[in-house]
């Protein structure tokens, strides 16, 4: 079995799906011979040619709007938006067209579209290249939002997204792109959208996280006292998220800490916290804690490490929840 990083695993999934289904089209800025600014689409242009790997004009709304038309006419476009900060111009197309088309046509005109977007901070990028906007799209009905963290999950979830009959935003934590490798099967496999994953089992407290923050959570778990048993959940899908797995875990542990890189107010942590108290109220031993980005702009990179969630802050929240 090959040992791949996140970039290679996503590339492999794209390559295999394009091979399998000639309706799959990759399009975006610099995705052709250049292979994308993160090299995620490397080699695809050479293998599949101009018609299926399209270097588009520099216009995000144009990319998504055109991809929507392709999807309406039975292609399976996989547009790339170069950085999450550039999703803004495409917001109207995503929310008012991709997300609405099935419903407003009562199933007549559907949009099987997978929008790939590098997301999050931690790579010393320029301004507007480090945001975490997943909650904005989770709040918009009609579009699924996925954020895998590991190469294995990314391959399986991307294949599911491409085969999904509805639009999916596929966020790729860019801090993880080349940070580690793991074994990824050569054969195609899928991971269902909407299923979270228990990274490690435990009985005393549940940590729920997604994206690059997973690694700060793992570090915090490593630092926790030996007699504390913590369950760590990687959400993987942001919308619809796996509330059943969270509830089952919190009913067992009685304590919950939600960790995300995005700003706090109206972040997905708020939704999870609210649903935990709705579903697990009588099991809770402590208030649900949140460890999140601040309600500030994501700072330029000299201060980004201070902004990003770290193991110490996660550790403190765990301590507080346990001591309550």
């Amino acid at each position: 079995m090959a040992t791949l990083n996140l970039v290679q695993a996503i590339n492999l999934a794209l390559q295999q799906e394009m091979q399998k289904d000639d309706r799959v089209i990759v399009l975006g800025e610099d995705v052709g011979p250049n292979g994308g600014v993160f090299r995620v689409t490397e080699g695809l242009h050479a293998q599949f040619g101009d018609d299926r790997v399209i270097d588009t004009p520099l216009a995000e709304s144009g990319i998504i709007g055109t991809a929507i038309g392709m999807a309406m006419n039975d292609l399976r476009p996989v547009p790339e938006i170069q950085f999450e900060g550039f999703l803004g111009p495409a917001y109207d197309q995503i929310v008012n067209h991709a997300a609405r088309s099935r419903s407003r046509s009562r199933g007549a005109i559907t949009v099987p579209l997978t929008i790939r977007v590098p997301v999050g901070g931690g790579i010393h990028a320029p301004e507007l290249h480090s945001d975490s906007p997943e909650a904005i799209y989770a709040h918009s009905p009609g579009i699924k939002v996925v954020m895998p963290t590991t190469p294995y999950d990314a391959k399986g979830l991307l294949i599911s997204a491409i085969r999904d009959p509805d639009p999916v935003i596929f966020f790729e934590p860019k801090r993880v792109y080349r940070s580690f490798r793991e074994e990824v099967p050569e054969d195609e496999y899928t991971i269902p959208i909407g299923e979270a994953k228990i990274v490690s089992e435990g009985d005393d407290l549940t940590v729920v996280t997604w994206g690059a923050s997973l690694f700060q959570c793992i570090e915090a778990l490593d630092n926790a006292p030996d007699d504390v048993s913590i369950e760590l959940i990687d959400l993987r899908t942001i919308d619809p998220f796996d509330m059943d797995m969270i509830a089952e875990s919190v009913e067992k542990t009685g304590r919950c800490v939600v960790v995300h890189e995005a700003a706090m107010t109206c972040g997905l942590g708020a939704e999870i916290s609210s649903r935990v108290q709705e579903r697990c109220f009588l099991h809770l031993e402590a208030p649900v804690q949140r460890v999140t980005g601040f309600d500030t702009l994501m700072p330029y990179y000299k201060l980004e490490n201070e902004y990003l969630v770290n193991a110490k802050r996660v550790g403190q929240a765990i301590e507080e929840a346990l001591a309550y």
Binding site: R52, G65, G69, M70, N73, L75, D92
Partner: peptide, 19 residues
């Protein structure tokens, strides 16, 4: 109903016919 946003879909629908 949203003004001017649907012509992009025409570009994509046409592209599918072309290829």
């Amino acid at each position: 109903v949203p003004i001017g946003t649907h012509m992009l879909h025409a570009a994509g629908i046409g592209y599918a016919e072309r290829i």
